[in-house]
Simulated scan of single mutants.
Amino acid sequence: EASGWTFHTIVGEHRDGNYICIPNWNIGSELAGLRDVFWNEERLKKYTNLNQDNAKAIARAIAEADRWIEKYHKEECG
C-alpha cells in the first residue's frame, strides 16, 4: 500500500532482465536490478500511470523485499 492505494505486484526475472507486473493497475514494465531504486522509480513514472510517490514506494518496496529475501536465504542455506 502507498498513498492509500493498493498494489498487488509480481516481480520476476526473464532472459533479458527483471520485470514487474501490477495486474490491478494494468501495469507491466522492465526493471533494472531489484535494488536500483532510482532507475526503477524513473521507469515506473515514465512508462506507467503511477505518480511519483507511488512509483517511489513501489521501487523501495522491491528493493527491501530483495534484501529480506537475500537475508532469509543466507540464514536458511547457511
Rank of each mutant, 00 (worst) to 15 (best):
E1N: 11
I20Q: 13
D16Y: 13
L50K: 01
R60T: 12
E30L: 01
N26T: 11
T48Q: 06
I69Y: 13
E64S: 08
G33H: 13
F38V: 14
N40E: 05
Q52N: 15
A2Q: 02
N40K: 10
W25S: 05
E75L: 12
N51M: 14
F7G: 07
N51R: 09
I10M: 00
Y19L: 09
G28P: 11
W25Y: 07
E41D: 04
E42G: 06
T9G: 04
R35V: 12
E30P: 15
G28K: 15
S3W: 02
I58F: 02
A63P: 02
G12D: 00
A57E: 02
G78D: 08
A57V: 03
K74T: 07
T48V: 07
W25P: 02
N49D: 12
A32C: 07
I69F: 13
C77K: 07
N18G: 11
A32L: 10
W68P: 00
N40C: 07
D53A: 14
I27W: 06
A57H: 02
D66S: 12
W25M: 15
D36G: 04
C21E: 06
K46D: 13
K71S: 06
S29Q: 05
K74N: 09
W39A: 05
I58C: 02
T6K: 15
E41L: 03
K56L: 10
A61N: 10
P23W: 11
R35W: 14
E1F: 08
K56D: 01
N24C: 15
N18M: 06
E30G: 15
K45F: 06
E70T: 01
N49R: 13
G33M: 05
N26G: 10
L44Q: 04
H14I: 08
G17E: 01
